[in-house]
Simulated assay, not measured.
Amino acid sequence: MTVEVTELAEEHESSLRALLVAEGMGLHAGTLLDHRHRPYERLYVALAGSVVVGFVEGTFTDREIFGSGEFPPPRARIVQLVVAVHSRRTGIGSALVGRFAIDAEAARLDSLVLYPEPDHADVRRAFFHHCGMRPVLGTPLLGARLDIIRTALVSRS
């Protein structure tokens, strides 16, 4: 499946809302769409034609203070990554993470972290491991330098 990853635009909103409802996240749709007006939020969608089949939400200004080991702030952080159930295991999640990482590097950041969601934790951890991310010792985070993520994704494409 060929997809285009782009920043969320107004013309994608209804298709993104449909994806969120289909994935059981309908209540999250309004909040997510409101976030796109915050300059520190980054929202990207994966489009198959004009249909949103995935999205990633994050920030390039993560400054949370917690024991983050080798990935101190400022850094990029993925808040949410969703791929339509019928489009999983096709490279869409990797494309979304890859675009997010490239733009984070362009913003002069050097690392990316995330809190893995508890739903389907093994599958999610395996996916992010595929992207080059590893557990950050002493924290609930997964993280990696952006160049490691880029290399991991390029070598697997």
Rank of each mutant, 00 (worst) to 15 (best):
E4W: 02
T6H: 07
E7H: 11
E7T: 13
A9K: 10
E10F: 01
E11L: 10
H12L: 05
S14R: 05
S15I: 09
S15M: 08
R17P: 07
L19Q: 10
L20M: 15
L20P: 14
L20S: 15
E23A: 13
E23K: 05
M25Q: 11
M25Y: 09
M25A: 13
G26E: 15
L27F: 05
A29C: 11
G30R: 04
T31L: 13
T31W: 07
T31K: 13
L33H: 01
L33G: 01
D34N: 09
H35F: 09
H35I: 09
H37W: 07
R38D: 08
P39R: 12
P39V: 12
P39L: 09
R42D: 05
R42A: 05
Y44E: 06
Y44Q: 05
V45L: 02
L47N: 03
A48C: 08
G49N: 05
S50N: 12
S50V: 10
S50R: 08
S50I: 10
S50F: 01
V51I: 09
F55I: 10
T59C: 09
F60L: 01
F60T: 02
D62V: 03
I65K: 02
I65N: 08
I65P: 06
F66R: 04
S68G: 08
E70R: 02
P72G: 07
P72E: 04
P72L: 06
P72Y: 01
P73H: 05
P73F: 05
P74C: 07
P74D: 06
P74Q: 07
R75T: 02
A76E: 00
R77E: 02
Q80P: 00
Q80K: 00
L81Q: 06
V82P: 03
V83P: 09
V83H: 04
V85G: 07
V85R: 11
H86Y: 00
S87L: 03
G91Y: 08
S94T: 15
S94I: 13
S94P: 14
S94C: 14
A95K: 09
G98T: 08
R99N: 10
F100D: 08
F100Q: 04
A101Y: 02
I102D: 10
A104C: 07
E105D: 09
E105T: 02
E105A: 02
R108C: 11
R108A: 14
R108F: 08
L109Q: 01
D110I: 06
S111T: 04
S111G: 01
S111I: 02
V113M: 05
V113H: 09
L114Q: 06
Y115A: 04
Y115W: 03
E117M: 03
P118E: 11
D119M: 00
H120S: 05
H120I: 06
D122G: 10
V123W: 04
V123N: 06
R125Q: 11
R125G: 10
F127I: 15
F128Q: 11
C131R: 14
G132I: 15
M133R: 11
P135W: 07
V136D: 02
L137N: 07
T139D: 01
P140V: 10
L142D: 06
L142M: 11
L142A: 03
A144T: 14
I149D: 15
R150D: 14
T151R: 15
A152R: 15
A152W: 15
L153Q: 14
L153D: 13
V154I: 13
V154F: 13
V154R: 14
S155F: 02
S157Q: 01
